[in-house]
Nucleic acid binder design. Sequence first.
DNA 1: ATGGTAGATACTCTA
Length: 256
Amino acid sequence: MKFATWNVNSILARLPLVLRWLGEAEPDVLCLQETKCTDDKFPAEAFAELGYRSETFGQPTYNGVAIVSRSKCESVERGLPGDEPGAQARVLRATIEGTRVVNVYVPNGASVGSDKYNFKLEWMRRLRELFDSRYGPDEQVLLCGDFNVAPEDRDVHNPKLWEGQVLFSEPERAALDRIKQWGFLDSFRLLNSEEKQFSWWDYRAGAFKRNHGLRIDHIWVSKPLAERTKAVMIDKQTRAWERPSDHAPVIAELEI
DNA sequence: ATGGTAGATACTCTA
C-alpha cells in the first residue's frame, strides 16, 4: 500500500493539481492538511470519480485535515482528546486495512516565544499523550502530516540561518523527538540519508528556485510498519507545477 | 533587503 501526505494550502484552490497527482502517483491513502474548507464544501465527488472515499475534518478559512482513501476508513475520530468544542481542526484518525492512520497539521508557531509558539509546544505535548493513552508501539500505527518542524541540520537548507527560528528551534525539535520516542521511526530516513531533501519551500523570495527549503512534512511509522517499508520519496515535481502548494507530497510504499 | 507571495475573507490574518 502507498500512503501519502500533502499540505495542499486550500483543497479548493488546489483540486486540479491534487487530482492530476493522484492519477500519476496512485497512492492508496492520501492525508491532506490545510484544506481550508468546511466539510460540506469538500470536493468529495471529484475524489469519488477517481475511486477514492473521503473523510473530512474542516473549518472555515484555516486549518482542516482530510483523508482520501481507496479502502474504507474505520473508527474515524476527529480532533485531539481534550479538545474544547470549536477547537482548531488539526487531527483526523482512521483505521485503514488494519493500519491506524493519524493525520496531523501541527500548529505553525508564528515566531519563537509568541502565544502561537507556546500553543504549538503544548499541542505537541498533547499529541504525545494521545499515543500514550490510545495506542501501543507494537501496533501498526502511521503518523503523518505537516509537522511544521525540521528534525535535523540536514533537513534545513541553511542550519546556521535557521538556528533558533520557528520550525527549527530547539524546544520544537525536542517536542518532536518526544513524540518520536513513543515508538516511531522516520520512514524517509530509514531509506534516505542525503541532506537537503525538502518538502516545503516558502512562496516568497524565489525559495524553490534556490532550493531554500525545509523537510517538515513527514511519514512516521511504528516498528511493525518500519519492517515493511519499501520506498519513501518526496515528490518535489509538484512544487514546479502551475499554481502549486508551497509543500510537496511525501509518499511511502509499505508491504501490507 | 524584517521584505517577499499565496489563500480566504472581507478590507486583515495566517502561513
